[in-house]
Computed example of a mutant assay.
Amino acid sequence: MISYAPLFKTMKDKSITTYTLIHVHGLNSRTIHNIKHGKGISTFTLEKLCVALDCTPNDVIEFIKEDNQKI
């Protein structure tokens, strides 16, 4: 499972709001909605978030393995 908890922590630490991501950095509001609801994002979006927040993918997403998850 992918968690976006690191993204919200990074945003808070850097004082960047979702409004800023949408209106300054050009992320789609639907993308922000999907993130808030735990849906997947593309690597293109991940890259845009990393550029906007000046961070790495680990500062945006976290992989959490579920006990019954098969590989």
Rank of each mutant, 00 (worst) to 15 (best):
S29D: 14
S42I: 07
I2K: 13
I35T: 02
R30M: 12
P6R: 00
T17K: 01
D67V: 10
S42P: 12
K14G: 02
F8H: 04
I61N: 01
Q69E: 15
D59W: 06
Y4R: 01
F63L: 13
T45A: 02
C50P: 12
D13G: 00
D59A: 01
T20V: 06
T56G: 07
K39L: 13
D13W: 03
V51Q: 12
L49P: 12
H25Y: 15
I2P: 08
L49M: 08
K48T: 07
R30T: 15
P57T: 06
F44R: 13
G40Q: 15
N28L: 07
K9F: 05
A5V: 08
S15Q: 11
S3F: 07
V60F: 10
D54C: 03
N28R: 06
N34P: 09
M1P: 10
N68I: 10
K36R: 15
S29I: 11
P57I: 04
E66N: 11
I64S: 04
L53K: 03
I35C: 00
T17P: 02
K36G: 05
K12H: 09
C55M: 05
S3A: 05
T45G: 04
K48Q: 15
D54W: 02
G40W: 14
L21G: 01
T20D: 14
G40D: 15
T43A: 10
E62D: 09
N28K: 05
K39R: 13
S42F: 13
I22E: 11
F8Y: 14
N58H: 12
T56F: 11
I41R: 03
H33F: 11
P6F: 00
V24A: 02
I16L: 03
I41G: 00
Q69H: 09
M11D: 03
P57R: 03
R30L: 13
H23K: 08
H33N: 13
H37K: 09
N58W: 12
L53A: 02
P6E: 01
I61P: 05
T17M: 00
G40F: 12
K70S: 13
A5L: 06
Y4L: 00
F63T: 13
E47P: 04
H23G: 00
K48L: 07
V60E: 08
I41T: 06
K12G: 02
T31C: 03
E47N: 13
S3E: 12
T18E: 10
T17I: 04
N28A: 02
M11C: 01
I71N: 15
T45W: 10
N58I: 04
C55F: 08
S29H: 11
D13F: 00
A5I: 07
L53D: 07
D13Y: 01
I35P: 04
